[in-house]
Amino acid sequence: MYTGKLRQVLLITDGCSNQGEDPIAMAALAKEQGITVNVIGVMEHDVIDEKGMTEIEGIAASGGGISQIVYAEALSQTVQMVTRKAMNQTIQGVVNRELQQILGRSKTMEDLPPEKRGEVMEIVDELGETVDLEVLILVDTSASMKTKLPTVKEALLDLSLSLNARTGENLFSVYAFPGKRADVEKLLDWTPNLQSLTSIFSKLSTGGITPTGPALRAALSSFNQKPSLRSLLASDDESYFEESM
């Protein structure tokens, strides 16, 4: 299952979905495919209502990821922190599975004495630095998000700055929902650099419904399409990572 590459969806939203499939179910579907779903809820002066909060936490929980509610000003710091944390969490999950195979069931890193834990942690750190990462960013562009979009753009540029300091490869892809015609619209295809976002974001129009569930489903299919194309180019890279495990 582990291909030496981490896949994440990062959902940035400010409230509740109101159309289509249940986003929590879609997040569970993502998890089944080995894709982690992280959610960041953006507030401004207002607070996110109880229902929105529950949904945000629910999506992350069933997507095996992390959720965080933040004020718009703290978005940059949070986006990179959540992505990194989720990445480490996934790596730790993988390492724990390996440990279970060696040490028997119900043994995880936390069950090791502190001295041994340090050695395992070094491996986790090493992997966090070198593993390839694919992040699909899903931005809510419903009307209420309009004022927050410049901050979202800044936060995403900051994210690519943080991740590109790693040794491992990164690929980003950006989707907005609702799209002009469909539930979701592709803004940026898989790319190692988010710099080109600047021009795209300024043209972005906001408004309409919040089809979080359908957007998630559409985003997942983009993960499935891409590897077939890319594996031609990067097949030898992947085998290298398997060896290093």
């Binding site: 480490n88 730790q92 890193m109 936390e110 502190p114 834990r117 340090g118 395992v120 942690m121 070094e122 986790v124 750190d125």
Partner: peptide, 13 residues
């Protein structure tokens, strides 16, 4: 978060 504690301990060691 045991991970962050462990990694700080690694640095101090």
């Amino acid at each position: 978060n045991g991970m962050s504690i462990t990694s700080e301990v690694n640095v101090l060691k």
